[in-house]
Amino acid sequence: MEKYVHEPSTRAQERGRRRRHLRHGVVLVLVTVLLAVAAFSGWMVLSRQWVIPGLDPEPRPVVDASCPQGKFSYAENNTVTVNVYNATTKAGLASTVASQLRDRGFKIGAVGNRRLGYNAEYGVVISGGFGRSEALSVQRNAAGLLYVTDTRRTDQTVDVVLGTRFKSLTDLSKVRKRNGTLNCLPEPASSATPTHTTTTSPTPMPTSPSSSKK
């Protein structure tokens, strides 16, 4: 009698274990697939092969569009923190440039995608008023990038936004480490000065004296 009760119970437990193992296996497969899809989607977005509207951070508004006057010192590379953004469809461009800048001693902050927002085919270097020496150092290492002032920024970090014509950093042997001026984004064209026309009153015609009747 005990054997009869024990065997069905054992079989039921075995079936229960198999069902649990099956459920766990299905859940594990689903989780693995979801992680793989998420990783693939993230890579496609970061490499800009997929562009999701509204996902890229908007460029900060630039209040001061004028070019800073005077010369700035070249900040040592290891004192400069750079955020590198890819504004093109070239996969991995920001990561590649960030790695190259790191090899030159720059500190790398954020690396990702961003809309360019400026008329600059090679890209732009952005900093606040306190980061212009740092921006000069970055610009000397990445010739072709134009400088833009972000007046809302109060730190010394620098943003690099890479454009479609950017290829590579300036050859290290050609990097000038002297003081110098920033190569700026062209200022917006000012409205044409209206031409003032001077109007003159017509010159009165001379009148001949009237002859008296005789």
Rank of each mutant, 00 (worst) to 15 (best):
Y122L: 05
A135I: 07
V62H: 10
G117D: 01
T81N: 09
W43L: 01
K174R: 14
A110D: 14
P206I: 01
V84L: 08
V33D: 00
L34I: 11
G92Y: 06
Y4N: 09
S168G: 03
R11C: 06
V31W: 10
P59H: 03
L182K: 04
S73V: 13
D103R: 15
R115F: 04
V138L: 12
T10N: 08
T193A: 12
T154H: 11
T164N: 08
T149W: 02
S168Y: 05
V27K: 08
A12E: 08
S66V: 09
M1H: 09
V160E: 06
E76H: 12
Y85G: 00
G180P: 04
Y122F: 11
E187M: 08
E7T: 11
N183G: 04
V27S: 07
Q13Y: 10
G105C: 05
I126S: 04
G144R: 09
S99K: 14
V27E: 06
P202Q: 11
S208V: 08
G128T: 08
P61I: 02
L162V: 01
V158K: 06
R152N: 13
Y147I: 09
N179M: 07
T198F: 08
G117L: 00
T149D: 10
T200Y: 15
Y4W: 10
R153G: 02
G129L: 10
V124C: 01
G129R: 14
S41A: 15
V148W: 10
H21N: 13
V33M: 12
I126D: 04
R104G: 00
V5I: 10
V80K: 02
Q156M: 07
S173E: 15
P206W: 08
T197S: 11
L93E: 04
N83H: 11
L101V: 00
V97W: 12
V148F: 01
D103L: 07
V160L: 13
I52E: 01
Q13A: 12
P206M: 02
V175D: 07
G92S: 05
T200M: 08
L185C: 01
S95R: 13
T181I: 07
R132A: 05
D56T: 00
L101S: 03
V26T: 06
R60L: 11
A143C: 07
N77C: 06
N179D: 15
S212C: 09
Y74Q: 01
H24K: 08
Y118K: 15
C67G: 01
A38M: 09
L162M: 01
V33K: 06
